[in-house]
Nucleic acid binder design. Structure first.
Lengths: 130, 130
DNA sequence: TATAGTGTATTAGTAGAATAGTACACAGCT
DNA sequence: AGCTGTGTACTATTCTACTAATACACTATA
């Protein structure tokens, strides 16, 4: 499992770990049951304090992505793994509804909203490649 | 201009002011050119330090919502409705970014996300007419 | 020009998040 | 039991966002 940490990105280190693990799980590059690097090992690899990794794993456990076994290790949760596409869409549906409601509230139509999304996507991609 | 502040909401006071003024402008309840309460007056009314209101106004000025005249007062920017629309889109941009990020984490592409939005929109409309 | 009302600037205090240091507790194995 | 590797708990430090206190500068108007 290879992660990339940007030290001065504004984004907290533990959050970067959480995000990247989430992503790896979502696209199936981390399989259910698979063991994740021990806290100290990952900490040493990322040149970070073990507590920081521990916090990331704690957050991932809260969200059901991983399962920790005290004294044994940390493993990708069976339930939290490459969720069926249907399930993923279900999760997004809530957020989508919130966005649509907000847009309606601001008198912004669906087409304009879609244009906005395309534009922001482009923007986010540019930001990523800098 | 009536604002409601929740002291222990996690949301910073200045941000609450910004959001509510933005909203009032977006729905036309604050017209271009209209004067906004002086910093000290609003501060006293909200039981808050003048600097906190000043910061909110500063943010609003940065975003082009209001225009400050040193020694005179603070006024809703008279750029008119096109700007208001711009501001509304700006508000939505934050939410859009959050949605796009979440989608990325779930490995859902932009096109699928847009399809989802269309579908949810339809669903919401149906719900409304029942 | 005097004065009252406005925004501005500088500094300081407070709280919380993020990270680190260190010692502890559990599991698995020999 | 003892050892090694794992997660955990507690504390301290650092940094930043937020808010506040206070003095300053500009504008309008009598």
């Amino acid at each position: 499992m290879h992660l990339r940490i940007s030290s001065n990105d504004g984004v907290p280190i533990y959050q970067q770990i959480v995000n990247q693990v989430k992503y790896l799980v979502a696209c199936g590059r981390l399989a259910p049951g698979e063991e994740v690097p021990p806290i100290r090992v990952l900490a040493e690899r990322l040149l970070v304090n073990p507590n920081t990794v521990a916090r990331a794993y704690l957050e991932l456990e809260r969200e059901g992505i991983v399962l920790k076994r005290h004294g044994s290790g940390t493993y990708i949760s069976d339930a939290g793994s490459p969720l069926a596409r249907k399930e993923r869409l279900k999760i997004l549906a809530e957020r989508a509804d919130a966005l649509l409601t907000e847009a309606h509230h601001l008198d912004i139509g669906l087409d304009d909203l879609i244009d906005l999304l395309k534009q922001r996507q482009k923007h986010l991609n540019q930001a990523k490649h800098e």
